[in-house]
Design a protein around this nucleic acid. Sequence first.
DNA 1: CTGAAAGCGCTTACAG
DNA 2: CTGAAAGCGCTTACAG
Lengths: 331, 331
Amino acid sequence: MARRPTVTSVQIAREAGVAQSTVSRVLNGGSVAPETRRRVLEVVAKYDFQPSQAARSLVGARSGLIGVVIRDLTNPFYPVMVKAMERVLHGQGLRLTLVTDVMTADEGLALLRREGVDGVVFTSAVRDEPLAHRIRGHGIPVVLCHRTLEGFAADQVEADNVTAGRLAAEHLLDLGHRRIAMVCGLAGASTSEQRGRGFRERGGACGEVALTELYAGYDYDAAYDAVRGLLAGAEPPTALFCHNDVMAYAALNAAAAAGVAVPRELSVVGCDDVPLSSWERIDLTTVRQPLERIARVGVELLLDRLADPDAPLRHEVLPVEFVGRSTTAPV
Amino acid sequence: MARRPTVTSVQIAREAGVAQSTVSRVLNGGSVAPETRRRVLEVVAKYDFQPSQAARSLVGARSGLIGVVIRDLTNPFYPVMVKAMERVLHGQGLRLTLVTDVMTADEGLALLRREGVDGVVFTSAVRDEPLAHRIRGHGIPVVLCHRTLEGFAADQVEADNVTAGRLAAEHLLDLGHRRIAMVCGLAGASTSEQRGRGFRERGGACGEVALTELYAGYDYDAAYDAVRGLLAGAEPPTALFCHNDVMAYAALNAAAAAGVAVPRELSVVGCDDVPLSSWERIDLTTVRQPLERIARVGVELLLDRLADPDAPLRHEVLPVEFVGRSTTAPV
DNA sequence: CTGAAAGCGCTTACAG
DNA sequence: CTGAAAGCGCTTACAG
């Protein structure tokens, strides 16, 4: 399996009878006589020549690599986002490099620097996010996508999470629920803070609502345990608002394990509306956020920023939508 | 947001008062006097110097990049594999580049070549797989992981899928089922062919089994439609063996949509045992294959191959295990 | 329109 | 143990 020596632009040039720089020009759209271009492209096609990305990024101003920071790939939410981002980037001839939770923030930063990424789409920001600040500190353009950071001067895109919380509250209050628990995501994550705020504002406006709040870090297992605890308590809630769908699934399963009937004894509302939620076996009432659109806009903001570094900052807030299904019922 | 100029090894060398090649030696473990090393590392730390990966792969024999071909990231199966692979690679200071279905096979190949990957872990092989052959044709080492290819001279790792099929058959036959449908994956995928073979061998040995077979491409929607069709037929099956868990979920949901009670009227067996399957709301009887271990071994086979290109080929077959849950019952 | 040349930031022999 | 030098495969001014 001896590595077949790779064809280089020098060899293409030789065989086409031109200078190496002409090959480069043909490939990068410089001005070349039609006949010369034809001759070069013929040789390029003959060998299916692929210019070395390493050489390109070494000499060029751009690496063509975009870093995407996504801590937890196993939340079904994220593969959908990655796919949407990849699609946009691939359409522009760019590539994506993933920074996930298999590495520490330090390692992630080192990676992004070594790779020379042109910019970073950050999806997992939390308050005082050290990584986002440090990436920017190295002069790498950052876009905050999905989760945002107040006072962080960067392009940002997020769902209208305050409204999401309000819609959830409205729905549960309309059904007559007054003893409600909120299974929050991550303290310091904008999504969780905004959803919580929207819910509280609407819930508080209604008086006499007993609202329990706890944080489960957007994590299935943590939410599962938390809900088991709630259901075993003296006065268990009649309804749950979970800050994402994954925790709502945990709630549904915890209820099943505890023999609590949903929605008869317990109503559950999620947030996200990932594909799983519409499965008949789940059929989760939730608030939809436009996942793929958030991802797409995140990448587009970054590409726009790279194209025009001095353009004014943008902050996009995308609409959410209540999706009533069968995990909620009147109290 | 002017790109802060990146620190290079030349600057580190100047500040440490040594030659640039000495910096390189310190970083790559060449022989350097302790005092010299100390001085260099001090400056390296001061700037948190990160050597350019582009320059490294341009000049070095290795790029440190491993290609991973995974067509469908949204099957919950694959994020688990990617994570396991990333963990191994990251531990070795290597990185991973993903080839998914957002690009064609041609584009994937071009990408892997431009990036100069050191090797490729292939998880989605199908018979006469053009991509795997072409990657190898370019002298890039390939490991077949999860799905294998007969007659393809490469290291391979897979689950014992024949046994998986046999275990599923045994279970359903023991429960008395004689009218069974098999929802197959992909014609030409080793996993599907082996699981099918194992099931048929065991099922056929029992006489008088009416076995319907159809292919749903390991796809949720296709399986959903197929099962709706089966259940609407004149003599619907009393049991289903689905070649992966995702199609089994589709079956469960299709049954729910059709008002068919599982397991009372229909038994469903899957294959994989991804985390979802143990959720109370799903609780799928299935055959577990060691997902993370398959992924890990796949990467290890590749790393071993890179370390010793002339070692004899290896073909690992990892054990599977029947997992009885609540989607199956006596006929 | 085209070629010759410099240079991107490293690793790796080659001397000493 | 250490430095000077070549060279990886490109892009990009610079001449002509």
